[in-house]
Design a protein around this nucleic acid. Structure first.
Lengths: 340, 340
DNA sequence: GTGAAAGCGCTAACAA
DNA sequence: TTGTTAGCGCTTTCAC
């Protein structure tokens, strides 16, 4: 950073013939200063092209009006939508966002947390990576009293705000739909069940099965991951076993897509030979499939907005508010699968 | 931010019985300090859970190892891929990224530039909004000597690095393909031609037409915007005029999609009744269309990586390097349109 | 309504 | 090898 561009309060002060303090106050609209000098100071600041130094400001005021965000991925429609919502509401509330990406890597996530704390963000929003198991850093954050909100991907720890989608309810309604259509052999591609989203969706599946008196066959709960590849692989195994269900409820859209493609690869027709229902629609990508799948719609925008709102609220209340979990509703959207 | 968590150099210094400076140097691996005290200091720092204060560090060292990024959108596959690439290479090079989103709004863009300058980022990467016309701020940035790289969306101003895709070449090869297939009536949906990407792609279209001796009919250059809606609207106008071309080359994937859907809406079959070729494929979304369109592939990852690389290089050379424009190659990908 | 003094946590330059 | 002094640009406190 070159020197010359550093116009400081002192420069303005000298020019207007007042003290630095007066300038500082005037520029921040402090009521102390008379409107005449205020105007004069602002005018000169504009002329000089003054740009306040956040570093200095934050260092002395010990607050940054900045929220740190950590997500597992960016180039995934779910996250990119959530992120955009966070940015938009932050802009409205005049907060800055510092976004980091863990790439589903727990170690990288930890490094980013440290960086953000180093930057003295006022609060944190985090959607944990698939790998994240160690909660030591979160315990410290709790001890230090830094406002943190878990979003969508939460870790099992008390004392923090969290904002999640109604994963269980959404899964339930998807499976219920399959049952109402008349299916009895219902498989679930469950992804990782050590993460809340996997666990909750599995619970939703199970409770729907139970409610309608259907038996949950262990071989029809297919574990793996959340990616397309996992869907493909899982389907192949199932297909080779010669024991296909009537319908598959997939834990994420990529998994559903993997299944979809594998099924087509084996010459099966969707939904006639094998039916599918998905959690998520990949930001509309689903509409381009023929046939498009019925799916559980996720409240991406709301997740982002609510997470930011909660975090800022907590910052303002100096982390004294009672931790709560906000569950946002999902919605079943019927397309061309799992319908009569 | 609560006080108690602010472990400072002084705290460590007191405990180890050395001065702050020694601690500072030790923690940064400065060769001055003996390895014994270095180890001891690091040990204590770890115990105390010391987290350095970037604000203070950057304020006194007058550099931040941080690059500011401004993009028009996040929730668009092109940008989310570019952004992810920027984040990944920044992580490799131990730089921090501060990302902001203009939402295609010039005023918001300006505010973000100010914020980032306020934060004293070491350099800037910017992909300008559709609206951006005023170059005053860029002139100032040039004067101040702050490294800035334009990426993909550039503004017409000298003296900055830029990284762009070969828009003209890509457009040329797309149109050439249409011609080779045998089409003569070739329309171009051109979006905004005041922005480089629109302008360059239009040039590519024109030069291909010229090379093969085809006349460019003014009514077949359809201006508008870069969105799906613009494609739809443009196609409707064209359709109503009763004077449809054989093939449409669309400036962006969303525009192509708008055309695609409008054509289907009128009962036209693609590519039989009307053919289409697109610039961009929306991160693979194109593959879900039936038929998928042939398209010009954009070098998203390379754009991001190169932009960061160039910016950091420039930071290191204190903005003394000669400004250059890097044009990254595009690639024509043939699918089910514009083929024999 | 205005300003002087002190200090935020750190690093740089120079001494010892 | 270690420490002293000064200061980054700003805000806060308290006196005038």
């Amino acid at each position: 950073m070159t020197k010359k561009f550093q116009i400081t309060l002192a420069d303005i002060a000298k020019k207007v013939n007042v003290s630095k303090v007066t300038v500082s106050k005037a520029l921040r609209g402090h009521p102390d200063i008379s409107s005449t000098t205020k105007e004069k100071i602002k005018q000169v600041a504009r002329e000089l092209g003054y740009i306040p130094n956040y570093m200095a400001r934050n260092l002395s005021s010990n607050s940054s009006r900045t929220i740190g965000v950590i997500v597992p991925k960016i180039a995934h429609s779910f996250f990119s939508n959530v992120i955009e919502a966070i940015y938009d509401s932050a802009f409205e509330q005049k907060y800055e966002i510092i976004l980091t990406v863990s790439q589903e890597n727990a170690e990288r996530e930890l490094q980013h947390i440290r960086s953000l704390l180093s930057m003295r963000v006022d609060g944190l929003i985090i959607s944990v990576s698939q790998q994240t198991k160690d909660d030591a850093i979160f315990q410290k954050i709790k001890k230090w009293g830094i406002p943190l909100t878990f979003m969508d991907r939460v870790i099992n720890i008390q004392g923090f705000n969290s904002v999640v989608a109604d994963d269980q309810g959404g899964a339930f309604s998807a499976v219920e739909q399959a049952i109402k259509v008349g299916y009895r052999k219902i498989a679930h591609f469950a992804g990782y069940t050590h993460i809340n989203i996997g666990k909750e969706r599995l619970l939703g599946y199970k409770s729907a099965m139970k409610k309608y008196g259907l038996t949950v066959r262990p071989e029809w709960i297919v574990n793996g991951g959340f990616s397309e590849e996992d869907g493909t692989k899982g389907f192949k195994t199932l297909y080779d076993s010669g024991n296909l269900p009537e319908v598959i409820f997939a834990v994420t859209f990529p998994v559903a897509l993997g299944v979809y493609r594998a099924a087509q690869h084996y010459g099966l027709t969707i939904p006639k030979d094998i039916d599918i229902i998905s959690f998520g629609n990949s930001g509309g990508l689903n509409q381009f499939l023929s046939p498009p799948m019925s799916y559980v719609e996720q409240p991406t925008i709301e997740l982002g907005r609510k997470a930011l709102e909660l975090t800022i609220e907590n910052v303002k209340q100096k982390n004294k508010s009672i931790p709560r979990t906000i569950t946002l509703p999902t919605r079943l959207v019927l397309c061309k699968t799992c319908v009569n």
